[in-house]
């Protein structure tokens, strides 16, 4: 009975929840709280003395042309990529829930790009855009493939959208497939007998029933695009002329290249507020439209 203390309630609490809580506190909570503090200081990452500067960092962040530019770019990328990736994913899911051959193999192919990490993904597509597209352009004489895809602000944006769609669609497709399979067949058939067209059935029966999946997919695509970093770093490095610099890249450059850690944490805090707000609002909004099957 000497080991009785180890079974005591408080000891169980420590052993069961302790390790995860300690790791979480050190790695997430502490930096989060420190970030809030440092965003009000002139910390440069090296000096021992850190002085309080009030809201100066937030003011300079708001006036920083590069930061505003990166926000604009990120917002545009998110809007376009979220819609297009979801449309493509839903289309793929619709096709793969039809009675067709090779469904398994097709699903594998569509999902495959997703397992490749963002950094390698960007490098692979760098080759496709620079050399691959040029070769296709030479063979087909199509103007589209002869553009300097990564050398121009407009096309670089679309290059990133294309890569995002290629890698993200398969993942969202899997979620849409799971939802579509669960739509009761009788409902769909009954509506078809009553004369509802395919588009009407899609809008009034399938969409309301798969709304939970739509919520999840929008949420996922939104957070992928808003936090985009790896792909852009390896595909365009934020160029040309910083036109494809995402917010995450801008924060990274501010802190680790310009060594303005105070300003960097202020930017990071603004970034956090916006990401948290968007995701919370978006989940609330789409949750409202969910219908029980």
């Amino acid at each position: 009975m000497t080991r009785k203390w180890i079974n005591a309630g408080w000891m169980q609490q420590i052993i069961f929840t302790g390790p995860a809580t300690v790791a979480f506190a050190i790695i997430v909570l502490l930096p989060f709280v420190m970030g809030m503090y440092y965003s009000f200081t002139d910390w440069n990452g090296v000096a021992d003395t850190v002085s309080f500067v009030g809201f100066d960092n937030f003011k300079s962040a708001a006036q920083d042309e590069g930061f505003r530019q990166s926000f604009l770019f990120t917002a545009k990328l998110t809007a376009v990529a979220v819609v297009l990736t979801n449309v493509l994913a839903f289309l793929l899911a619709l096709l793969l829930t039809q009675p067709i051959r090779m469904r398994g193999a097709l699903r594998t192919i569509f999902f495959l790009p997703n397992v490749i990490g963002g950094l390698l993904l960007g490098f692979i597509w760098q080759f496709i855009f620079v050399k691959g597209f040029a070769a296709i352009g030479k063979a087909t004489d199509w103007h589209l493939f002869k553009l300097p895809w990564l050398g121009d602000e407009q096309t670089s944006f679309w290059a990133i959208v294309i890569v995002t769609m290629w890698s993200g669609a398969g993942y969202l497709m899997v979620i849409y497939i799971a939802a579509l399979i669960n739509v009761p067949k009788e409902l769909n058939e009954a509506a078809a007998i009553d004369g509802a067209t395919a588009v009407q059935r899609l809008r009034h029966i399938i969409f309301p029933l798969i709304m939970p999946a739509v919520t999840i997919c929008l949420f996922l695509a939104l957070s992928w695009s808003f936090k985009a970093f790896d792909v852009i770093l390896s595909l365009t490095k934020g160029g040309p002329f910083n036109s494809t610099q995402s917010v995450a890249l801008n924060i990274y450059a501010e802190a680790f290249q310009n060594n303005r850690y105070g300003l960097g944490t202020a930017k990071a805090f603004i970034f956090f507020l916006i990401v948290a707000a968007i995701t919370t609002i978006q989940v609330r909004l789409t949750k409202k439209r969910e219908v029980e099957a």
Partner: peptide
């Protein structure tokens, strides 16, 4: 707390994380 922290993007805490 654990659940709420899911909305924190990595880039928003990476700078102080280096200090920690």
């Amino acid at each position: 707390l654990f659940v709420a922290a899911m909305v924190i993007p990595f880039q928003s805490i990476m700078i102080p994380l280096m200090k920690v």
